[in-house]
Amino acid sequence: MTAIPVQPPPIAIPAPPRTTLFLLAPGLLLLFAIFALPLFGLVLESLKQYVPGRVGSAVDAPLTLENYRELATPSFAGVLYETFKLSAAASLAGLLAAFPLAYCIVRRFSPRQRAVCIGLLVMLVLLSMLVRTYALELAFGSVGVARPLFLALGISPTSRWYTETLVAAGLLHAVVPMCTLTLLGTIQNIDPRFCDAAQSLGAPAWKAHLGITVPLALPGLVSAFLIAMTFSISAFVIPMVLGKGRVLFLSNTIYTRFSDVANYPSGAAVSIVMLVISLLVLSLVSLVQRRRGSRS
């Protein structure tokens, strides 16, 4: 009897056959045409010299870093700081509110109640941001329904502190349904018996959640935070309506540069800065998460 050499079956990664390329082509072309190309144009525009009074740069304008250098000012840093401070606050608060909400929907509700809740949350996400934001303004704005209450409490609805809080609250109300929906799947995938086991081993429910549920939900919490954060950083309507020009976000600055003062190169530069910062936040957080993931 001859020995048959034992070989692992070859794992072939097939080259994409012609049909695959054919099927991918329309999507890739579209992405190139409406995403990559304009973005490249934006980068180019941000490097062109601005001529005051002119809408957009000239075709033969010389390349320069002036548009970026000009951003290194306290006022732009202030906008950056404001954007990140309020976004981070709203995202963290949103996460804190969304986690118990998602937990309750998954673990405590009947399938019917769950379906109703998820429907409501999806509706909230899809409802016009402008409508929701004006509703907030009408309720809590400087001339809103709640004004007498705030005055009675000694809070000035026109103070900077209040306006900032209002913008953060606006972001929060948009972020909570998003985070909740993101966390539903995460919590669904955590075996409820982990918590039972922890309790049978002497951990009160809150400790069991802190020591077991939260660490196991960490990947979901990170993605929910990232979604909330990237949404908040690029928010436009919320700071515009609720901030009334006193709280400026990056998006508002971009809008002003493009539309009000027609400084396209500068608007483009701010846009690129925002894009790069968003990407940095994203990669930083996912890097931290991967580190943690590889440890466990």
């Binding site: 075996d191 018996r193 982990f194 039972d196 086991a197 922890a198 309790q199 049978s200 429910a205 466990s296």
Partner: peptide
């Protein structure tokens, strides 16, 4: 549950996946 000292063995073990064996036993 945590006020009674009752040991519980689950059908699908329910070992905490993010802890080592020793950490599980020490929990």
């Amino acid at each position: 549950p945590y006020e009674r000292n009752v040991g519980l063995l689950f059908q699908h073990y329910a070992l905490f996946p993010h802890m080592t064996v020793a950490e599980n036993i020490a929990y």
